[in-house]
Computed example of a mutant assay.
Amino acid sequence: MAEPGYAANSVVNQIPQSIVFEEKKTYTILKRGIDIFGALFGLICLSWLFLIITILIKLEDPKGPVFFKQIRVGKNGKEFYMYKFRSMVTDAEEILKDLLKYNEIEGAMFKIKNDPRITKIGKVLRKTSMDELPQLINVLKGNMSLVGPRPPLPREVAQYTNYDKQRLLVTPGCTGLWQVTGRNSVSFKKMVELDLIYIKNRSLIYDIRIILKTIVIILKPNNAY
């Protein structure tokens, strides 16, 4: 399957001037260095955890894949494959169309509690956010950062207003202000607002604070599902 490219309709040209955005070159260079170091450090130190999760996923579903990849939309509307540990049944995407009517979040995002597609080990992985660990590979590839807005699905971006599309001004992240503020209890509208607050105020200190808070949340899971 070919790597996804740019979305058919350019997102960047439609972004309004609701926020004053400037590319902070020094910050961007330093941030990329931290991303590479952090991703390598995480992959090496957590290799034992990757092995354990792989075994548990295979024990529950020997025929299913360990990893799940999905097309997401990144900076400037560029699409890429995002990697995760598989936490759902293998035909989750086919089942989704029958569940959309049960969506519990308003706006261009889908979330429901007790999602029937989630496997037993998947519930644990999601509760602890360990299903997100393979995204360290995305960080190394450069299509994600350690900190930034969560990368949306193409079908979600298709519902975005011009205001919402401002989320795509920066590289998406494994964690961000939304995740450490309330995650699934936060509405789509509030998530966008939090992402724009981050974009306006992004700095290395801000990123480090979010990373540290993320570690606390992983050690003490909140309302993730």
Results as ranks from 00 to 15, higher is better:
M1A: 11
A2Y: 14
A2C: 10
P4A: 08
P4C: 12
Y6A: 14
A8Y: 15
V11L: 14
V11M: 14
I15R: 00
Q17K: 15
I19Y: 15
F21W: 15
K24C: 13
Y27W: 15
Y27C: 07
K31H: 10
K31G: 12
G33H: 01
I34N: 01
D35R: 00
I36W: 04
I36L: 13
G38S: 08
G38I: 08
G38D: 00
A39T: 04
L40V: 12
L40D: 00
F41E: 02
G42N: 03
G42F: 14
G42K: 11
S47I: 10
W48S: 03
L49T: 09
L49K: 08
L56I: 09
L56Q: 03
L56R: 07
I57C: 04
I57T: 00
K58A: 02
E60Q: 13
E60L: 05
P62L: 08
K63E: 10
P65N: 03
P65E: 04
V66E: 00
F67I: 01
Q70F: 08
Q70W: 03
V73Q: 06
K75T: 00
G77K: 06
Y81P: 04
Y83M: 12
K84I: 04
F85H: 08
F85E: 00
R86S: 01
M88K: 02
K97Q: 10
L99A: 05
L100T: 01
Y102P: 02
N103E: 00
E104Y: 07
I105T: 07
I105L: 09
G107V: 07
A108F: 06
M109S: 06
F110P: 02
P116Y: 05
I118Y: 08
I121H: 09
I121L: 03
G122L: 01
K123Y: 11
R126D: 06
S129I: 07
M130E: 01
D131V: 04
L136G: 03
L136M: 14
L136F: 15
N138Q: 01
K141C: 08
G142F: 06
G142A: 01
S145C: 05
L146S: 02
P149L: 09
P152S: 09
P152T: 11
V157I: 11
Y163D: 09
Y163Q: 10
Y163F: 15
R167K: 12
R167C: 01
L168Y: 12
T171K: 10
G173Y: 02
W178I: 11
W178H: 11
W178A: 13
W178M: 08
G182N: 03
N184E: 10
N184K: 13
V186N: 09
S187C: 08
F188L: 06
K189R: 12
K189C: 02
M191L: 11
V192C: 10
E193V: 04
D195R: 07
D195M: 06
I197Q: 13
Y198S: 05
K200R: 15
K200M: 08
N201A: 09
Y206T: 02
R209F: 11
I211L: 15
L212K: 05
L212G: 03
K213N: 06
T214W: 05
T214I: 03
V216R: 11
I218K: 13
I218P: 03
I218A: 04
L219N: 06
N222F: 12
N222H: 07
A224E: 02
A224S: 13
